[in-house]
Amino acid sequence: MCNLSSKFSCADFTFPLLPHYKVLQLIKLIGIDAVDIGLFEGRSHHFPSDISKNPTKEGIRLVKDLKEIGLEPADVFLQTGEEPNIAATNSPDKNTRKNNRTTFLKTLEFTKTLGCKHITGLPGVFHEKQTTQDDWKIACEENHWRVEKAKEFNITYAIEAHVGSILPDAISTLKFIKECPEITLTLDYGHFIYQGQTNKSVHPLIKHTSHFHARGGAKGKLQTSVKDNKIDFKAIALHLKQNKYSGFTCMEYVHVDWEGCNKTDNISETIRLHNLLKQLVYSE
């Protein structure tokens, strides 16, 4: 009996110090057969601005690498700015939002060429010179537009509620889902547990989840080893099963100089977490 989707992927941005082809090889060597592709402006193997110049050509090039290594694409994670508050989805600047829309359309072309069915984006942030109501309204409008455009490509669009965003907890996230029809989630418990929220408070988000990010986390620590982890993956597995979750579970350790996310051995912890989650998948 499976308690969790047995489809596992690993983020390519888990290993930013290696050339991309070697990252893909490493993911395969770890025993994972799918990859999440990060498109983070200024800080990933592939930048959205570069992909946008010729998304079909870039997609074909990456498909070749994936086929050679034996990986399938699970998700394309788009961040149009180097940080969430730069070129945010709900930027108050109209030209920025226009550019973001153009980038998103190019990302859809790239994702379709890859044969991938899922895109993750960020919901938006609060801006100092903008009212919270306007920030919220623009975020709803822009993310709903993305949902509708993605549907035209037969692609599911999801947002990741995260620390520092307009969606810092489950209550605000559920409200946003209600006001932004058909939006789904790429769910990472770490952003909630880090802030001292409980696993139980996050469980209601699972039924809206189309992609799942897994890594160790604890209060005050956005990323931890599996040994120090306080995210209740056993309970999560049961809730995912109850909600008939069929998406990918992505091993998403990251290596960035932010909130201590450069202090884990990403190879070892990815293997440990993958083994733990496989046990939950195949446990009776």
Rank of each mutant, 00 (worst) to 15 (best):
I69P: 08
R97C: 06
N99W: 15
T102R: 15
N95K: 15
G115D: 05
R97Q: 07
G59H: 04
T107I: 14
F104A: 08
Q79I: 13
H20M: 02
E68C: 01
T111W: 01
K53H: 10
A87L: 15
N100I: 08
K94H: 07
R61H: 10
D50Y: 13
C116R: 03
V23G: 11
G31D: 03
I69K: 05
H118S: 09
P84I: 11
G81H: 12
T102S: 15
K22D: 03
C116E: 11
I51N: 04
R97E: 06
A34T: 06
G42I: 00
K53Q: 14
T120V: 09
H45S: 13
L122Y: 08
S49C: 10
G121N: 13
R61A: 10
T80A: 12
P55E: 04
N85K: 15
F110I: 09
F15D: 10
I30A: 07
I60V: 13
E41N: 04
I60P: 12
K106T: 13
G81I: 07
P19M: 08
P92V: 11
K117R: 14
T107D: 06
P123W: 11
G70I: 04
H20L: 00
K94E: 15
T80K: 11
I60E: 10
I51F: 03
F15T: 10
N99M: 15
L105S: 15
T56A: 12
E109K: 08
I51Q: 06
L39T: 10
F40G: 05
N85F: 15
S49V: 08
T120M: 04
E41V: 06
Y21C: 00
S91C: 11
L78Y: 05
S49P: 03
G115L: 03
V76H: 00
I27V: 12
E68P: 01
Q25R: 09
H118F: 12
G121R: 03
T113M: 05
N54Y: 03
G115T: 06
K57T: 06
D50C: 11
N85C: 11
T80N: 14
D50M: 09
N54D: 08
P55C: 04
K94S: 14
P48S: 02
L105W: 00
T111V: 05
E72P: 07
E82K: 13
T102M: 09
H20D: 10
G121T: 14
T113W: 04
P92Q: 02
L39D: 04
I27E: 08
A34Y: 09
K112R: 14
P73N: 10
R43T: 01
V35I: 03
F110L: 00
V63D: 02
L17H: 14
P123T: 04
E109S: 07
N90M: 07
V76L: 00
L122T: 03
L24K: 02
L122P: 11
